[in-house]
Computed example of a mutant assay.
Amino acid sequence: MPFWLDIAAFALKALLIVAMLAALAALIARLTRRDAGRPREIEVRSLNERYEQMRDEFDTKIFDRKERRLLAKARKREARARAATPKGKRVYVLGFKGDPMASTVKQLALEIDAVLTVARPETDEVVLRLQSPGGTVTGYGLAAAELSRLRDRRIKVTASVDQVAASGGYMMACAADKIVAAPFALVGSIGVVAQVPNLHRLLKKNDIDYEELTAGEFKRSVSMLGEITPAGREHFRGKIEDTHTAFKSFVAERRPTADLAKVANGDVWLASEAVNLGLVDAVSTGDDLLFHLKDEARLFEVATVTRKTLLQQLFGGLGFEDRSALAPLGELAKAFIRIRNN
């Protein structure tokens, strides 16, 4: 009899453990589903304070107590002098790291909204730290339009390029009043490219029929599976040329000193070369640009952050800040859902 009692007790414990794991998996699955559409928030950080903290760290190592006291008094006087001029310049630093779809353009728009609520026309400035090899015309056209909102409200914009601003990335840079780039940064690529694989001959070779029914002569001028006709090819090429013309017109409007006959051929240049071509105004790294600005303005870094989910808050204290660390728990949740559905 005790043998069966032991088995029953073991089974009960196992059932309780399974039930607890199932409840945990269900909770994780529910919280994970809430990740999509999480609200984004604006985070503002004073870069002047960051520089001052670095300086203070060195002060404690370099100077003795008496010297530090004298320095502190001098800096307090400087701070009071700056506080007495409330209309001093403010610089808002934004970042944009682009991919082919310009997928962070919504974040950029939100940051620009935030800046426009406080920025003072013809007084404040925006520095955009830009890195992008380009991408879709629609995505980067929108990004350039978002930056133009600042110029339209008389907020000076400086585009800072440390590595690359090509094609759509350079279109974004042209939306700024000034372009500053590191010596070996690549800029330009004022051109348009479209690549469409076509499998029509392969289908025909294997006796596979493919029909594409459209209404309108050029509804689908170039297709992946259908036959590309000379008329369709020419129409598609014309659209590319029209887009290139619009791109060149935008550059000509924003960069009147650029020689379009020389630079609008799709080629790229090092920033040290691009200065003479009118594509870039000055050669400097973004860090050096901000380092010099800190003495004449208050610098604020503006970034979009995603509010932490309840799941991340719960596990953050356990060292699971990295989302990838939660992957095993996520897999457990998915497995539980599959079992439950079956």
Score class of each variant (00 low, 15 high):
G95V: 00
E49D: 14
L108S: 04
E52Q: 14
G98L: 01
K61M: 15
R34T: 12
P121Q: 10
V91L: 05
A72H: 04
T104P: 05
I112D: 01
M54A: 10
K87Y: 04
P39I: 07
I62V: 14
K73E: 04
T117G: 11
R65H: 11
E111S: 12
M101N: 13
D56H: 03
R80V: 06
A83Y: 08
P39N: 11
N48M: 07
Q107K: 12
P86L: 04
G98K: 00
A36Y: 05
D99F: 05
L94G: 01
E49A: 14
V44K: 02
V115H: 05
L110S: 10
G88Y: 02
R33N: 11
F63L: 00
K89W: 00
F58W: 14
K97Q: 13
A102C: 15
V115E: 01
E122D: 14
L47G: 04
E52P: 09
R82W: 04
V115R: 01
P121T: 06
A109W: 03
T85K: 06
A81W: 04
D113H: 02
K97V: 11
D56C: 00
R69V: 01
T60R: 15
K106W: 13
A102L: 07
K97N: 14
S103V: 04
D124A: 06
Q53M: 03
A81Y: 02
Y92A: 03
Y92L: 07
A84Y: 01
M54V: 12
A83K: 09
P39G: 12
E67D: 10
E43V: 15
K97H: 12
A114F: 08
A74H: 08
P121H: 06
Q107D: 13
T123I: 15
R65F: 14
K66S: 11
E111L: 03
R33T: 13
L110A: 13
R68I: 08
P86M: 09
A109K: 11
R69C: 03
V44Q: 04
A109G: 12
A79D: 06
E43W: 13
L94K: 01
K87F: 06
E41Y: 03
S103D: 08
L108T: 02
E78G: 09
D59P: 04
E41P: 07
E122A: 13
A114K: 02
R82D: 08
S103R: 08
Y51M: 09
V118L: 09
R55Y: 03
A81P: 01
V91I: 08
R33L: 15
E111R: 04
